[in-house]
Design a binder for these strands. Structure first.
Lengths: 119, 119
DNA sequence: GCAATGGTCAACCGATCGGTTGAATAAGAC
DNA sequence: GTCTTATTCAACCGATCGGTTGACCATTGC
């Protein structure tokens, strides 16, 4: 129910500061997922992932909707807008470089997203 | 084991998660400042501000240069680029709205930047 | 009904965080 | 030299963080 646009910068940046949570966001970029499926690639407990999802939801970065016994997680990119706008002000308002983003995305997927070395 | 490739995002986002540190960055947007002058508007000790500046420098968001007995703090907006690029990927690559940025800047200055209610 | 599945809750743990204080170091000012 | 200013260091504090475990609640399937 919280408007993602009004989520304070504190919680958004704090949520983004954790590599596991950034990896989760990257996964949700592809599709909505159930909590158990989000947790699958990680080496930590389901409860830990559940906490991470609560933090992401608290920051407005995702929403969670329960259908039956499955809770679906959905990315809410709009919550990033305020933080992005805030940050952009410190650069010379340079245009976003898509190639650079793709490179970062690959690194995130290949590293954080890989449960192999996240212990 | 922290991944050196994604560590920058960790430290940058963590540094931005604190309102005092964001207020410092906003102050440095105007001009370079000495540590004591950075600390002046805040209600906390100089040592606390010194720690905040160390964290900002560790994230690459500022640099500090000692001239005489004064240590000057300088904004380094380029450190925001990687984080900004990462974030922008979750939106529709929308162009930055300058008016929106100014509104946020004012809110930051009026709330976080005011030493009156920062306890 | 009963068992399995999906997810959270509660208590606990060590590490880190944001702050304090007081002493220490370094560089001007006189 | 001595006093003052600028800044950090070191030790400490309570709160929060990221994780664990085991018990608990819901929903589904047989």
């Amino acid at each position: 129910m919280t408007d993602p646009r009004t989520a304070p910068l504190d919680t958004v940046f704090a949520a983004l500061a954790d590599p596991t949570r950034r990896a989760i966001l990257t996964m949700l970029l592809e599709d909505d997922m159930a909590v158990t499926d989000v947790a699958e690639p990680f080496e930590m407990s389901l409860a830990a992932i559940s906490k991470h999802l609560t933090i992401l939801a608290g920051a407005g970065l995702i929403t969670q909707e329960k259908r039956g016994r499955v809770k679906w997680c959905k990315l809410e990119p709009d919550a990033l807008k305020s933080a992005s706008v805030w940050m952009q002000g410190f650069g010379q308002f340079e245009p976003v470089n898509l190639d650079a983003f793709e490179a970062f995305l690959e690194r995130e997927l290949g590293r954080d997203g890989d449960a192999g070395d996240m212990a």
